[in-house]
Design a protein around this nucleic acid. Structure first.
Lengths: 258, 258
DNA sequence: CCGGGTTTTTGACGGCGGTCAATTGCGGCA
DNA sequence: TGCCGCAATTGACCGCCGTCAAAAACCCGG
């Protein structure tokens, strides 16, 4: 039997952007040839973070942006009571560290949720390369914009949705992102704890747990700890919109303005 | 008597970045001489929007980024029920439109809360100029980063705070931003409606109204409709942190993780 | 100065979800 | 294999804030 696993490992270990499976999503999108080689030169050694290790912490001096290569990160801020608020979860192809550009210091902490490999983009060198390659500059802004859009969606979720809708949206968004990574979005293995999910959604862990159970009772999900199977994607999608709009629905929390 | 008002008007009407009072906050920060002139050439006619007019709408094709010059904007998204969720309020020196870079179409709507003047930065030309001026490129990213940081703070607010804390944080943040604009942050004239504030904070308008009243009763604010005076900035700052941490406080909604 | 419509305020009430507490389940380690 | 600790689940309770309704304040045009 051919060592399939080994082949995959070899691919994972490759260093060049040219051979990266994330090309379409990440900075190299639309770049090729010479330019790609120049970008490659700017990307520093790929790092591997074990679960629970921090990539950077709040207050750290800013030197680099980072792109997730495999695995997953969470970013969060910690207040004076050591309470942490999860800002986002970051899957392969997504960029982190942008918030440090304004002040020169990281405002949040990024931590590996599982074994995670990272591309480091030292900012000074990245700047140099982008100034020479307009297409790359555009792509950098595009990747950043993608993050901003995701945060907007998150804000909307936190702003006006019931707990069950928040959880449904979270799962759907995760499934969608797995799909764009060519993984099976209906068989999720959640790298984050229930506590992280709760924090991310502005809920408490008990509420998250309860709604997992109810979704399972409703036949929408099969939940076995971290392993979540979406049995009825159609129903899950339905849950993502607030209460059936029977005229005069009771659950619409923000009736149309004006 | 010298026509002081006229002098101010003349200043407002000037078009060049070199003479703009926002230089320190906006893109020109750290740019000068020739480079500034090149940036100036890329900035299109300053527009004026009357209250209630849209700068762009969701779905519009992306052509430009915009910087608020005077006045104020809100950005929001509208869901299928015509419910609007306010994403942010934007004061002079702040940039909007970044979320459109990813897809080429605006994902949100930007609307003037009062008479507002705008600098339009046609993206194609902006790209051209930034690629020639590294310092400008860095500054663009810095301004974008500032927006991302603000959204993070907003997320944290929405995520784990009581209604009164959210309102306090909102007012404090507004006061701080007015201060950096060299205005008096203790005498606010809110350009947005109570409804907008509620939406922004993930609350309903009644809750916002009630807390304004209670802050007034507590002697923290003087509220007369849109005109809000901060009488006790110290107390307001205190309200910005959740519940006194008496050991075992009842109000801590997310006890320290781990 | 007056009248209609909108924004804001105030009150009463009920439910969602946060709090507290106890149990269960799973993983790691000797 | 059995113990320990943490994560996750489940249940009981209740308070904050959303809902509904009405009054008050304000705006503006005539």
């Amino acid at each position: 039997m051919p060592p399939v696993a080994d082949l995959i490992d070899i691919r994972q270990l490759r260093r060049s952007c040219a051979s990266c499976g994330l090309q379409e999503l990440c900075l190299p999108a639309g770049i090729s040839g010479d330019d790609l080689a120049r970008l490659d030169a700017a990307v520093r050694d790929k790092r591997v973070l074990e679960r629970g290790r921090a990539l950077y912490r709040a207050g750290d001096a800013f030197h680099s942006l980072f792109v997730v290569r495999s695995g997953a990160l969470k970013t969060f801020v910690t207040d004076e009571n050591a309470t942490q608020q999860v800002i986002g979860f970051h899957l392969p192809g997504e960029i982190v560290g942008i918030d440090a550009l304004a002040s020169g210091r990281h405002a949040s902490q990024a931590e590996a949720l599982e074994r995670t490999s990272i591309c480091e983009l030292p900012f000074a060198q990245l700047e140099h390369v982008t100034s020479e390659i307009p297409a790359l500059q555009r792509q950098l802004l595009r990747v950043i914009s993608r993050e901003v859009v995701q945060e907007h969606e998150h804000l909307v979720t936190m702003g006006q949705q019931q707990a069950q809708v928040r959880l449904a949206i979270f799962l759907k968004s995760l499934a969608d992102r797995y799909n764009t990574l060519h993984r099976d979005g209906n068989h999720l293995v959640l790298p984050m704890s229930r506590h992280d999910i709760a924090s991310y959604l502005g809920l408490v862990v008990e509420t998250v747990s309860r709604w997992f159970t109810r979704f399972e009772d409703a036949g929408i999900l099969e939940v076995r700890r971290k392993a979540v199977t979406i049995l009825r994607p159609d129903l899950l999608a339905q849950m993502c919109r607030p209460a059936e709009s029977d005229s005069g629905s009771k659950k619409a929390r923000h009736p149309a303005a004006n």
